[in-house]
Design a protein around this nucleic acid. Structure first.
Lengths: 156, 156
DNA sequence: TCCTTAATGGAAACAATTTCCAATAATAAG
DNA sequence: CTTATTATTGGAAATTGTTTCCATTAAGGA
């Protein structure tokens, strides 16, 4: 039985197919895990979260799939300085929910913020345009993070 | 003979001492390596560059020292997605030379740009203020990177 | 339903970084 | 200057996130 039969069509199937990738139940599971959380999951986090329901999806597949999803533009990879990559969907079933990050350098806690995002995005757009013209880059993405110490760590 | 005698006082000695760290010739060498280049050095790059002149500085010391310098605020650690950390002085002997990065996701080439930096910094300052008030963070730093494909990789 | 080929899991390899520990050297104290 | 204290050190070994290998499985077009 094909995976499509089993799972039903999903919002992301088109994008994955357009890039020439197949739809599999492992990929289903991984995207599902990313879409039901606000957390910033590492590859191993994903593994842990799907392992009960999909015990036959190995860690290797998770790494491979996350790479693939980053390539396909469905997932963004972040580095918050704790030695492992963290992944987030670039958009959910309901569309984009754009945010940037505030990272505590003590406890590595990450806060997603959307405040001021409109001003930021506007500036980014114009900067992007200027940069791509000047340097001949095709710009697909940006990263903004603020680093500091969170309330809890300041209290210590 | 103390290191200070051997090396003479340097612009960064105060900061390092204020944090309770000692001045050693290894640290001298590492900061020297970072300050004479525009490149984004990895720990191993630093090792390679100082090894002729300081054959007795080991890779372990480099990792430790870079960590220490990041803590002391003299060095910033970057991740450009090639699997190793890269380091830059936050300021040189002549003071800050603030820039942001344009990263090619194909070849991992990194361009430092300073265009539009004033507008960016102004927006960042006000965002920083807003965020630190709202979330109770003390913000010490920020990161802005643009990702895309460079001219050379586009040509292929 | 069959066929081609992408996708898979698990073990092993890999690479960046960290840990351990005895030896060394920077600085404070005398 | 000399001595005592203690941070720093190099190198080997351990660790850990990630990738590679390869024989097996399964997706999806025909």
């Amino acid at each position: 039985m094909s995976c499509k039969r089993r799972c039903g069509a999903q919002w992301w199937h088109g994008k994955v197919k357009d890039c020439g990738y197949r739809i599999t139940s492992g990929r289903e599971a991984i995207i599902e895990a990313l879409s039901v959380t606000q957390d910033h999951l590492s590859a191993e986090d994903v593994y842990t979260r799907i392992h009960d329901k999909y015990p036959n999806v190995g860690l290797t597949t998770i790494y491979r799939t996350l790479d693939m999803l980053v390539n396909a533009g469905l997932v963004f990879r972040f580095d918050f300085g704790d030695g492992k990559s963290r992944y987030e969907l670039t958009e959910g079933p309901k569309g984009a929910h754009h945010h940037h990050h505030l990272v505590c350098t003590e406890c590595k806690r990450v806060i997603d913020y959307t405040d001021f995002i409109d001003d930021e995005l506007e500036l980014l757009r114009s900067t992007e345009k200027g940069l791509s013209e000047k340097y001949g880059f095709r710009i697909d993405n940006h990263l903004i993070q603020f680093y500091g110490t969170c309330t809890d760590c300041l209290a210590k």
